[in-house]
Design a protein around this nucleic acid. Structure first.
Lengths: 244, 244
DNA sequence: GTCGTTATTCTCATACTGAGATTGTCTCAC
DNA sequence: GTGAGACAATCTCAGTATGAGAATAACGAC
């Protein structure tokens, strides 16, 4: 039997059927606090429970494309959104309906309009990560992984610029780091560091129209630079507890 | 319809069937050079071509467990092997038989015995990463991702200790970094750095039985410490070309 | 105008890094 | 045995990065 004959005789049903879903952890910053996009499930299982937006992949649809579709179904936005694969989850009992393997994605977006509920959700909202409800399936674990990944990626990539607008001030950028890491940073040292890392930001020559809402001088405006990696990296303050 | 009724009426065949496989990138160091475990395919598609070891997940089998099973089928070893999930690949045409989503795993092991061919492979071997044949499916891309991940993880985790024996010398550890990163390192600085990172290695109080094969004093023996993260990290030499 | 706020820049002590050199122990070839 | 070369381990030194605090100056609110 040559390769062509083999393929013609091949029976896909001989292999155990598994459903594959994508689940998206979409993060944004609202009012200086990190928020995640959640949907309230309208159908069993876990009807009424909050969950990550996601769904089954379609025939002929790549994983990345499925994730982008799920995200745009809830937010309507695909512009200026960074999306990347995170990990896969396939515990045999993670979905009571059948064997489901979920590929999770992490997305970052600047301040976004209110989300809209998709077809299988009764509601959708940005929820502060410090005020999470109980989540459906194993989505709490997925979210935990996503947050840790996001925190780590801020260290060595210019990802933070995906959370702000086209142009931004150093203070706005610092606000992103403080929101995602959940710690206050030294303004002076942060400023020095951002400007000293090659390709992180580049000057626009402009400044803000006015000072901040509570006073202070006009800030210079920057745009994202061309670096893909920050070198040297911008490390989080000491994390002794995580080392061992 | 309540949740129980819904589940009873649920028809899994309403969703597009997808097969899920795991593919393992198993790395080891032989003769100071990085090698990857490959199998020669005995069945179509790609019969006769080299590929990563892997296969379909079984009903009721978790992803991690499937990866460990595939690895042990080829190497017979599960001890002292570090294994972790890497990424998933689901391009619609990546397997000519049917829709296949592959979850890739990365495994590291100390110097291992010769592999044995599994049921669906005609041969299995450790192949130097600088002498790779053309691979089946999209396995070259998976392997590239795995190598980059392994190189990155050496920087901030004590993973290198998974490539050496129970006890080891600083020079052996340096050999791991040099093999994986593909660059020579400054022996004195490496020595200083390894001993200064808390929890990376701990002294056994022993030394090697004799000097090296080409002379030199006996070296002190260390074992892996209790650190899960290296802090500060052990960074690769400048990689200007990767920054932009 | 005065005051509080904040952007930006400095200072300074400490820590980390790369490059090179030193010391002393060991194996091998002769 | 003896000498040459290899190599573990330690040190020096200059350059760079970091954390903490302070100084300067521009702005909004009153």
């Amino acid at each position: 039997m040559d390769e062509r004959e083999y393929l013609a005789a091949y029976d896909p049903r001989a292999y155990p059927a598994v459903a594959v879903t994508v689940d998206v952890v979409a993060l944004t910053i609202i009012g200086g606090l990190l928020h995640v996009l959640l949907v309230e499930r309208g159908e069993p299982p876990f009807a009424g429970r909050w969950a990550l937006p996601g769904g089954f992949i379609r025939p002929g649809e790549d994983l990345d494309r499925a994730a982008a579709r799920e995200l745009s179904e809830e937010t309507g936005m695909t512009d200026r959104v960074h999306i990347e694969q995170l990990a896969s989850y396939g515990a045999p009992d993670r979905d009571p309906r059948m064997r489901v393997v979920s590929v999770s994605y992490l997305a970052f977006a600047p301040d976004l309009p209110d989300p809209r509920a998709g077809s299988d959700a009764s509601d959708a909202a940005w929820i502060g990560v410090d005020h999470l409800p109980e989540l459906a399936f194993d989505h709490e674990r997925i979210l935990d992984h996503a947050l840790e990944r996001a925190r780590a990626k801020l260290e060595y990539t210019p990802l933070a610029t995906a959370f702000v607008g086209e142009t931004f001030t150093i203070s706005e950028l610092r606000g992103v780091y403080e929101a995602v890491w959940g710690v206050p940073l030294h303004a002076g040292n942060f400023h020095r560091k951002v400007l000293s890392v090659p390709g992180f930001v580049e000057s626009t020559g402009q400044t803000t129209e006015s000072g901040g809402p509570r006073g202070g001088p006009r800030a210079k405006l920057y745009r994202a630079g061309d670096a893909r990696l920050l070198h040297p990296a911008l490390l989080r303050p000491e994390r002794e507890e995580e080392v061992r």
